[in-house]
Amino acid sequence: MKALIQKLVETVGPSGYEEKVREVVRAEIEGWVDEMKVDALGNLIARKGTRTEGGMRIALSAHMDEIGVIATHVDENGFVRFTTIGGVSPRTCIGGRVQFLNGVRGVIYMESLESATALPTLDQLYIDVGASSRETCPVKVGDIAAFDRPFLDLGGRLVSKAMDDRISVAVMIQALKELTATPHELYFIFSTQEEVGLRGATTAAYGVDPELALAVDVTRTGDTPKGVKMEVALGKGPAIKVRDSGMLSDPRVVRWMVETAEKAGIPYQLEVLEGGTTDARAMQLTRAGVPAGCLSIPTRYIHSPSEMVDYQDVQLSVRLLVALLSAPVTLK
């Protein structure tokens, strides 16, 4: 599974420009699903299974897009000013590298600041692509780039940009391959534009019209030196979301996930995330409402170019997802 993860995280696909990721996913799942389509917003929606006794129409969503930047201006000396796509913090940008969709690479640096301890604002940052004039700069206004950082395998822990949320894309791909039998009509949604406001999942969920929905996404941890206080840690298994700042998971869905994990002997953690939300919110609020929850993969340093996950958590997430989808569901 590591090879798949590496391929996914190293593919460039900022929000709205997920095409290359979509092609990787499509090639991976071809033959493993019953039907595939791409909707108006670029979501890849794959159906697997038909509904039998006790089955439901279930939507699962992991987003293909990653955070990135977009050029707003090229100055007379060829420096590129930019704004963000999704939640990019200036402090993770300085000295970082980006890759534009047309292949151009560049480094981010900043204007000189008033004090050595100050953090730059976004307006004070620029990308240097090695050009020396506006005319010769290979980047123009509106061009889009993703952060550039190679995949790092630390053995038990994996590090990369775009772990959020390619790790979940990998988990979903792996789960749909391992899933041999299901009573459900499953829709695996590889969604777009999550980082800019759950936009892809909003329209995909409307189209699928599910009776039950699960997002697969990353969540923060509280296990780093003087970090946020939060009872989720790497290496303790997948997290079952109870709430985040955009959604209250349906308590019946939480119960189903907890009971399934306990029955299958899969360690899990309960998650209350203060800050951020996932595709589950969009799916919960579509049409006349959908019971929704989220399986979260504990991840350190989210939205930095070095997001870290625990490989065992990842494998356990696949197991939990397979367990959840293999048997009939009764929400209670």
């Binding site: 979501n43 909003t202 409307y206 189209g207």
Partner: peptide, 23 residues
């Protein structure tokens, strides 16, 4: 001209998310 990417929003923001999505 291309508007500089950045803040602000137009009705496209509401329209493109309706139903199954509208380019």
């Amino acid at each position: 001209q291309f508007r500089q990417p950045g803040g602000g929003g137009t009705n496209a923001g509401a329209i493109h998310r309706v139903r199954e999505g509208v380019p």
